[in-house]
Each structure stands twice: as structure tokens, then as C-alpha cells.
Simulated scan of single mutants.
Amino acid sequence: MKSALLLLAFSATTVFAQLPAGTKPPGEDWIQLYNGKDVANWNSVGGQQWTSEDGILTGKAVNKSYGYLETLRDYKDFQLSLRFKCVGSGNSGVYFHTKFKPGTADVSQGAQFEIDCRIGQHTAGVYGFGRAWIVWPSPQNETVVRQTDWNEMLVTVEGNHYTSRLNGVQMVDFTDPRAPFIQGTIALQLHSGGDGHMQFKDIWVRDLTKK
């Protein structure tokens, strides 16, 4: 057993030594997007209210328009991990490969992993690119979402390949043959209608583009 452990440690050290300079090994290359204090790493689009308190990021609609909180840089291939909780009756989503028309909250490109705590609303499915639903979870997984508690979501985007896990359950694994875009920002959405009220925390991203 001791010899096996020594061999494993030696192998891991050898692999990490071969990583390009400045590259962190898997598991250590996650970046905290939300620092638990403010929205310094984000850009607000659409004029909705985004506040931070006690490590929780809250988005609350103040008008009937869409609202977004987008990253300051583009991502191509990535993994994103977060926790979300639905407080109001509105819905939300994690947009990817996103761009907005200048000076507006109109999405000019992008799709989203749906967030909606009502049963049967395809949370963790993919919607957008001007085509409505692209893929949604199997019917037996529609009850995985927790309606009044925190949910854990992990999404992976690699080019036109999209996967998502919700509360430990795989929801979609889909390669989109019609994907028109493969790069853009990541954005948290507040759906239009005026009753959007969502909470997020523990938001981390792992850039896979150079992996």
C-alpha cells in the first residue's frame, strides 16, 4: 500500500510539473466570480436591482424589463458552479456566449441554462439563440429542482456541447449542431414581468478554453 501511494504521489507530481508555466492543476483553477461582498466582477445590464449582503447576491426586478448581470470578459469553453434560490415568482437563467445590443438589455446573441423553481419548467435545460428551447431535461428529472431551498447547479460549455447538473443529477448532455456562436459573456438573468426575485451565491468559473 505504501509503495502504491508513493507511486501515485510521484505520478501526480510528474503530471503537474508538465503543466505550462502559470497553469494551475485541475481543482485549483477555479476563479470566484462573486466575491460575497459586491458586484465588482460584473456589469449590470437593464437597470434592475442587484445587491450583496451576507454572502448572497440578490437580483430584484424594479420594472417590467429584463435585467442581467454579466461578466466583464468573454468566455468560450468553461464550467460554472453556483447556488440559486427562487424568492419571487419570476424566473432566471445562466446566459452564455452572450452579447447585448449597445446601450440596451436586448440580447443580440446567447442562450441560457434555465432557472425556474416551478415544477415542469425545464430548469437546467437550454433555451435561446433565437430558437426557443434547444434541449430540456427528461420528464423524470423535472422534480429535481427545490422550490423553497437552495439549489446547486454545475454547467459546462465546450463549443457547441452543453451539459448541466442540478442538485447532483445530470439534466442535459447535448451537442448543438446549429450553434451560431461559441464565445461571449456569462450573464445572470432576471426575467421580464416585474416579479423577478432571485438569490445566488458561491459562483465559481473554470476557464477550459486553453485546456
Rank of each mutant, 00 (worst) to 15 (best):
G90V: 13
A132F: 02
R131V: 09
D106N: 01
T156M: 10
I56H: 01
Y95N: 10
F129W: 14
Q32C: 05
R165G: 00
Q32R: 14
L8M: 12
V144I: 12
A17T: 09
Q140V: 05
A12K: 03
D207N: 15
K210A: 14
D38R: 11
Y75L: 08
Y66C: 04
G55I: 07
I115Q: 07
G36K: 02
Q183I: 12
I31P: 01
Y127S: 06
R83D: 07
G159W: 07
G194W: 13
L72C: 04
Q121T: 13
E142L: 14
P102S: 11
P180G: 13
Q48M: 05
V15G: 04
P180F: 12
Q109Y: 12
L6M: 03
Q140F: 00
C86M: 15
L166S: 00
D106T: 04
T175M: 12
Q121Y: 10
Q112P: 00
L8S: 12
W136I: 12
T13M: 13
N91F: 12
S138A: 11
P26T: 08
D176N: 09
G55Q: 11
T143G: 00
F181N: 15
P139H: 03
A105D: 07
W50R: 13
F200K: 03
L154S: 04
T104P: 08
E28Q: 12
T209W: 03
L166R: 01
F16Q: 11
T14A: 14
V126H: 05
L208Y: 03
G196F: 02
V126T: 08
Q79W: 08
L166W: 01
L57Q: 11
I31G: 05
L208V: 03
F181E: 14
N167W: 07
Q48F: 00
V45I: 15
A17G: 10
N160K: 14
Q121L: 10
T51S: 15
N151T: 10
G59S: 03
V87E: 02
P137V: 02
Q79Y: 09
T148S: 05
T175D: 11
I31F: 15
V144Q: 11
E142Y: 10
G184A: 13
Q48P: 00
E152G: 03
E28G: 02
G194L: 14
V107Q: 05
K24F: 00
S108K: 11
P137A: 03
A17D: 02
E114F: 00
W136N: 09
R73D: 15
T209R: 07
W50L: 12
T175V: 15
M1Q: 06
F129R: 05
V94R: 04
F78P: 07
A187E: 10
D202W: 06
W50I: 12
A4G: 06
A111N: 07
T163L: 12
P177E: 08
Y68V: 04
K60Q: 14
H197G: 01
A105P: 00
S65H: 06
D176H: 04
D149Y: 01
P137E: 03
P25L: 00
G59M: 06
I119F: 08
N160L: 06
